[in-house]
């Protein structure tokens, strides 16, 4: 981990190959390192993140949303959320140079999950790191079945629309369920086409609707979403009889280094301190039980 790049805080220069508007607030950036050696060596596990460094502006952590099976480039889905990300949206275009360091964090324990069914639960931007697992499965058939539950406010804000619409049509062992809080035009159209796969409400409502149709008892579950989501989804998953040792989640905290030095991402109490950047961002349900404050 982190051995890919030699300069601890700088990272390596990368060129933006493509920028795609996903929604009004999220863009997908495809990047490639200038140094071919790094492109060849750069390897990561879904769930890991990189630090995205814009000279003179600042730096922030962002999950890798492409799959390690697709080499030679990296994809990052960036939401305009604050000062640096706003700058990125407005000024980083095709051809721009930024600095990338990483990959950091632990990533998902994919080996352990091999050949089991997996349930991905995404809320909003949480779809970004989970897309890495999704693409990984499409390329390697790593899981016996993949169930994606993706909750988003409305169709307008849904990420990766094209990919998800393709999968909705039915794809071998990948099953997609969407939940929308507001039914806008796009959502209405999807409901018309794929009635059984769309639920009005929260992602937990979608999970409830599929009680009995998804083999929750044998599945691994992985979730990512806004801080408020975790408590409710964990409760629902336990209620659906997902085994507690098979519940994984990826969390976020303020991060200034990504490598356990700056102290911002520390959580926990006197018996259990965790660094989200080193010990996470992927945590288990056992971690949640033994570390106060990990989820709210």
């Amino acid at each position: 981990m982190g051995d890919n790049l030699k300069n601890t805080y700088l990272g390596a220069p990368a060129r933006v190959l493509e920028v795609e508007n996903l929604t009004s607030i999220e863009k997908l950036y495809t990047l490639r390192f200038l140094d071919n050696d790094i492109n060849n060596k750069f390897n990561f596990i879904p769930g890991q993140f990189v630090m995205f460094n814009v000279p003179g502006i600042g730096e922030f952590p962002v999950s890798i949303c492409s799959s390690p099976t697709r080499t030679g480039y990296l994809q990052l889905c960036i939401r305009r959320a604050g000062r640096v990300t706003k700058y990125v949206h407005e000024n980083i275009v095709e051809g721009s140079i930024v600095y990338i360091r990483g990959p950091y964090g632990n990533g998902f324990p994919l080996e352990e999950m091999k050949n089991s069914p997996i349930v991905l639960v995404a809320g909003g931007l949480g779809m970004a790191p989970l897309r890495s697992i999704l693409l990984y499965h499409l390329d390697t058939q790593h899981f016996s079945d993949l169930y994606l539950f993706y909750g988003v406010r409305n169709y307008e804000l849904m990420l990766f629309k094209r990919e998800i619409r393709t999968l909705l049509r039915g794809y071998y062992n990948v099953h997609v369920y969407l939940s929308f809080e507001d039914i806008d035009r796009g959502a209405r159209e999807l409901i018309r086409l794929y009635r059984k796969s769309i639920v009005r409400g929260m992602v937990t409502d979608a999970l409830e609707v599929l009680r009995g149709s998804v083999p929750f008892e044998e599945s691994y579950a992985v979730m990512c979403g806004p801080p408020v989501m975790y408590k409710f989804v964990v409760k629902k998953l336990l209620d659906l009889k997902v085994r507690p040792d098979r519940i994984y989640m990826t969390l976020e905290r303020r991060m200034k280094c990504g490598i356990g030095k700056c102290g911002h991402c520390i959580v926990g109490t006197s018996t259990s301190i965790k660094y989200v950047c080193l010990d996470g961002p992927v945590f288990t349900y056992w971690d949640v039980l033994s570390t106060k404050g990990l989820i709210e």
């Binding site: 000279p55 003179g56 600042g58 730096e59 030095k261 700056c262 102290g263 911002h264």
Partner: peptide
């Protein structure tokens, strides 16, 4: 205690510096 914060400072129109300070 060793937390630090980072920020960028502009020195001229095209030169800037990444700095860290105690937080």
């Amino acid at each position: 205690c060793r937390c630090f914060e980072t920020y960028d400072v502009w020195l001229s129109v095209n030169t800037s510096m990444r700095v860290r300070r105690y937080d």
